[in-house]
Design a protein around this nucleic acid. Structure first.
Length: 558
RNA sequence: GCGCCCGUAGCUCAGUGGAUCAGAGUACUUGGCUUCGAACCAAGGGGUCGCAAGUUCGAAUCUUGCCGGGCGUACCA
């Protein structure tokens, strides 16, 4: 492809004396393997009819591409379509599984995602952001980046005050020993119930609200004093650990892992210190007893970094977080993957950082995705407790898989859930339907797994290569080879746009192409076995590799 | 009010700095397993790409306005 591009550039220069970077696209199969619209673009520039330009170009191109192209044609208003020779297509397919971009070669990348809050539940939204974040991190890694996966969460803050308040109510005071009466399996649910209780009390009961604010402050103090022994501290640390255990359990289920947790309590100090320092230098201002950053001069809005109680808000903690990441990794790129409800928030935080550490904000990239919405328009709220937990989604998928196949299959469950989340373009909201969204059919993860297993099954029935690789391909073989050869371009595009869904779309089309081939073409025992066997092998390799990038298992047998 | 995002088939979504771009899955109707795995394949109906204007040889895609929806907008995150 690059070679064709180079030749095209040279020919355009020679014939028309024009510099341009011609773009090659993949047209509909009937038109050829590559297509370019340069003639149309040139026509305007040099004042000729597009069709004439195309004809001149093709004439000059013919001898140059003699070794490569089987056919060069002009179509429609002046598109130039190129069909490459079969053995070159096969050669391109042969290198497809290993070809990777080097966009982030040797770059140190910190990828932060998932970000559930201790003392709260890991819900459907977290599951989505975890799966998407993991795939994006994988993309960065595919492109040569040295990726450090990190996780951030609020182990201090008002929500902790709310939960602690309810826990104390439940235990009848500061009695950490009573925690042992809660069964291990119930801990996570029990904690999220306490959060709901605390939240309701906070908004309905003035007395409770005051108590919660005090508890919030006590939690910060507990961190300052490194208190692990007082009864209050024991309750806090124990239940905090319960939260992290619950998170680790679901990450294990998802087969994702993090190098490091950054609890907010560990970024708070540096955050406050920095904000206070920069307050003196005029980056931040005092206003109504709070410390704020005024975003209006930059087209943004004002946000509070330290509230009038002297406590840091998320803004200050985020400053502490990015600086802690910098101290730990001296990153080239820092990506944070979150929901799009905080885009404006993040702009303000990054703008404030730009004032005193521009190298940090310049290297930061905030990637956002939409919200997970329940089908039936019920809005989820962890405060109200009507949430779909991450575990609920996985359980529902497991149930659906068992019902459809009659067996327990964790790999298919992972494929169904992850693919359902990943196949959509990152950005818009996604509708999650617990009943329907976990499909095993059509454009789904299990479809890909099934198509992979079938290919592996064929390959297992072969012993070595029988015969010669054909010089010319039959139409169905050619379609498959052509699709396989597109893989590196798809990865490239996915990396460039940080969009894993391109890979999903491609893999589905690839599997479809294979299934169509498989329907009418025998491999084992056929006179074209060597050629077909090679194609099936390459197909399976690409499918497996693509699924690996998405962190979806590709078992040989289902 | 202002800012950001979104509006494509009944439903869920691809396609988005132009052309070969009106597509997929699902649902519905129908056909295909004595042959490498039917979680598959094939066929059919179904859309004024929210509306309108503009730019262009050409617009789902770019510009503007309007309509509809979501999120954010100072001490939650």
């Amino acid at each position: 492809m690059q070679k064709i591009q180079q030749i095209l550039t040279r020919v355009i220069q020679k014939v028309f004396n024009q510099h341009m970077q011609p773009e090659l696209s993949r047209p509909d199969e009937q038109f050829g393997d590559f297509s370019t619209n340069v003639a149309l673009q040139l026509a305007g520039k040099i004042g000729k009819k597009p069709r004439e330009v195309a004809e001149e170009l093709v004439e000059a191109l013919q001898p140059e591409l003699a070794e490569i192209a089987a056919d060069i044609s002009i179509a429609g208003p002046g598109f130039i379509n190129i069909r490459i020779k079969d053995h070159l297509l096969l050669a391109a397919a042969a290198v497809a599984p290993e070809s990777k971009p080097d966009t982030y070669k040797d770059k140190v990348v910190v990828a932060e995602y998932s970000d559930p809050n201790p003392f709260k539940v890991l819900h459907a939204g977290h599951l989505y952001t975890t799966v998407v974040g993991d795939a994006v991190a994988n993309l960065l890694q595919e492109a040569g980046g040295k990726v450090h996966r990190v996780n951030f969460g609020g182990d201090v803050g008002l929500h902790v005050g709310r939960t602690m308040w309810a826990i104390l109510q439940e235990l009848g005071g500061e009695h950490p020993e009573k925690l042992s009466s809660i069964p291990k399996a119930q801990r996570s649910i029990w904690l999220s119930q306490q959060y709901v209780k605390g939240s309701n009390a906070y908004s309905e009961d003035a007395e409770a609200k005051e108590a919660i604010i005090k508890l919030n402050k006590r939690v910060y103090q507990l961190h300052e004093k490194r208190d692990h022994t007082s009864p209050f501290a024991q309750i806090y640390w124990t239940t905090r650990e319960w939260s992290y255990d619950a998170f680790d359990a679901i990450y294990k289920r998802l087969n994702v892992s993090f190098e490091k947790y950054y609890p907010e309590s560990e970024t708070t100090e540096l955050g406050i210190k920095t904000v206070r320092e920069q307050l003196k230098k005029g980056v931040f201002q005092e206003s109504d007893g709070a410390v704020v950053f005024k975003g209006e001069p930059y087209g943004l809005h004002t946000r509070v970094f330290i509230n009038s109680n002297g406590l840091p808000t998320y803004e200050a903690k985020d400053i502490g977080l990015i600086m802690t990441k910098w101290n730990d990794y001296k990153f080239d790129i820092s990506t944070v993957i979150t929901g799009n409800d905080i885009v404006e928030y993040m702009k303000v935080v990054l703008k404030s950082i730009e004032q005193f550490a521009p190298e940090l904000s310049n290297r930061s990239k905030h990637l956002t995705h939409g919200m997970v919405k329940m089908a039936g328009r019920v809005k989820m709220s962890s405060r109200k407790g009507n949430i779909l937990r991450g575990d609920d989604i996985l359980d529902a998928a497991a149930e659906a898989t068992k019902k459809a196949t009659g067996q327990i299959n964790d790999e298919a469950v992972l494929a169904a859930v992850k693919y359902a989340f990943l196949k959509q373009r990152i950005g818009g909201d996604i509708i999650y339907d617990p009943e329907e969204s976990v499909s095993l059919e059509g454009n789904s993860g299990p479809y890909l797994q099934y198509a992979h297993a079938r290919a592996c099954s064929i390959l297992q029935k072969t012993t070595g290569f029988e015969g010669e690789i054909a010089a010319e391909l039959e139409p169905a073989e050619r379609s498959l080879a052509r699709k396989i050869s597109e893989y590196p371009e798809v990865i490239q595009k996915s990396v460039a746009d940080m969009m894993p869904h391109y890979i999903c779309t491609y893999l589905y089309e690839l599997a479809q192409t294979f299934n169509r081939f498989y329907e009418h073409n025998r491999v084992v025992g056929n006179e074209r076995q060597a050629t077909r066997q090679l194609l099936v092998q390459l197909y399976a390799d690409v499918l497996k590799d693509g699924l690996r990038v998405l962190n979806i298992p590709a078992p040989v047998r289902l």
